[in-house]
C-alpha cells in the first residue's frame, strides 16, 4: 500500500495539473468574449489565466471551483434544505441501500436454489449469464415510471414512498445479477474432497450448507457485493433521471444539464463518486469484520 502511495499521488497531481492546463484553452473563447464586451484590451496573461479558472459557468470548471461548490452545498448549508448536496446524496443513498439489500438477499436466495437444484441450475443459469450481456440499465426508466404509476395508481401509495420504492427496485435489479453469479461460484467452491468429508460425518444438507458451503462462499459474496453496490448506485442515479424526480444526485445532474450549471454537474458527479467509494469501502469493512469473526486470514 505505502509502496504505491507516492506514485498514486504523483499521478493524481499530474491529473490535476493537466486539468488546470486544459481549463485555460477550453474556457478561453468565452473569456475573450467577456473582455470584448467590456472593451478590455491588453489583459495581462496572469489575469487571463485566473479569469479562465474562475468563470461563473465555465465549459470546464476547475478543481477548486468544484470543491468550493461541494463545500458550499454540504458543510455551509443545513442538510435539510434542497440546496444541500447532503440532502440529495441521502435521497440517493437511502434508495441505493434499500435496493442493494433487496438485490443481495434475492441474489443469495437464487444462488442457493441454483446450487441445490439441478433443474433450476440448468433452467436459470444460461439466462442469468446471457442477461449479463444485455444493457439492463435501459430498463431503468421503464421500471421507474411503471413502478411509480403502479404504486401511486393501483396501490394508492403517496408519491414519495412510491418514488423511493421504484428507484430501489431498479437498484435491486442491477445488484442482484452480480451477487447471484458470484454466490453460485462461491457455493460451489468447496472441493469434492471436502464435501465427501461432510458426507462421512453424516452431515445433513443444511449442516453442509452452513458449515462448509456458506463460509467458503463468503469471499465471493463480498467481491460480488462490491460490484453490486456500485451497480446499484448507478441504477438509482439513472432511476432518478426520468420520473421528474426533484431530489437525488441524478436529478441534480439533470437539473444542472438543463440550466447549464456546469459547476453543479461536476459537484454532483464528485458527490456520486465519493458516495460510490464510501459504499465500496463500507462493504470492504464489513468483509474485514466478518473475516475477523470467522478467524480467517486476510486474503
Amino acid at each position: 500500500m505505502s509502496r504505491s502511495l507516492l506514485p498514486v499521488l504523483v499521478v493524481l497531481a499530474a491529473i490535476v495539473a493537466i486539468w488546470y492546463a486544459a481549463a485555460i484553452p477550453v474556457n478561453a473563447p468565452w473569456q475573450e468574449s467577456i473582455y470584448q464586451r467590456a472593451d478590455e484590451t491588453d489583459v495581462p496573461f496572469s489575469r487571463f489565466v485566473l479569469d479562465t479558472w474562475n468563470q461563473d459557468r465555465p465549459v470546464l470548471p476547475t478543481a477548486h471551483q468544484v470543491f468550493r461548490e461541494l463545500y458550499n452545498t454540504t458543510i455551509a448549508v443545513s442538510p435539510t434544505v434542497p440546496r444541500s448536496l447532503v440532502f440529495h446524496a441521502w435521497v440517493t443513498l437511502s434508495a441505493t441501500m434499500a435496493g442493494f439489500g433487496m438485490g443481495t438477499v434475492l441474489g443469495i436466495g437464487l444462488a442457493v436454489l441454483i446450487v441445490h437444484n439441478h433443474a433450476m441450475n440448468r433452467s436459470l443459469m444460461p439466462w442469468i449469464v446471457a442477461s449479463q450481456t444485455i444493457p439492463i440499465l435501459a430498463l431503468a426508466p421503464l421500471i421507474v415510471v411503471i413502478g411509480f404509476n403502479l404504486f401511486t395508481g393501483q396501490l394508492g401509495m403517496p408519491t414519495e414512498p412510491a418514488r423511493f420504492l421504484s428507484k430501489a427496485l431498479i437498484s435491486a435489479y442491477l445488484s442482484f445479477f452480480p451477487v447471484t453469479v458470484g454466490m453460485v461460484k462461491g457455493l460451489r467452491a468447496p472441493e469434492r474432497i471436502q464435501l465427501d468429508l461432510m458426507h462421512t460425518y453424516h452431515a445433513s444438507a443444511t449442516q453442509t450448507f452452513f458449515k462448509l458451503r456458506w463460509p467458503s462462499a463468503l469471499p465471493y459474496l463480498f467481491t460480488s457485493m462490491k460490484v453490486g453496490v456500485a451497480a446499484s448506485l448507478v441504477g438509482t442515479i439513472v432511476g432518478e433521471l426520468p420520473t421528474g424526480a426533484v431530489a437525488g444526485l441524478g436529478a441534480r445532474l439533470l437539473a444542472g444539464s438543463y440550466y447549464g450549471q456546469t459547476v453543479q454537474i461536476w459537484s454532483a458527479l464528485f458527490a456520486a463518486s465519493i458516495l460510490a467509494a464510501l459504499l465500496v469501502i463500507a462493504v470492504g469493512l464489513v468483509e474485514r469484520l466478518v473475516n475477523k469473526r470467522l478467524g480467517a486470514r486476510a486474503a
Binding site: 506514485p7 456500485a230 448506485l233 460510490a276
Partner: peptide
C-alpha cells in the same frame, strides 16, 4: 506510472462514470 495508475484505474471502475454524460 504503472503503480500510480493501476489503483486509480481499479478505483474508477467502481465510480458512476455514466454521470459524465451531461458534461
Amino acid at each position: 506510472l504503472k503503480r500510480g495508475l493501476l489503483p486509480l484505474g481499479n478505483f474508477v471502475s467502481a465510480l458512476p462514470i455514466i454521470g459524465v454524460a451531461p458534461i
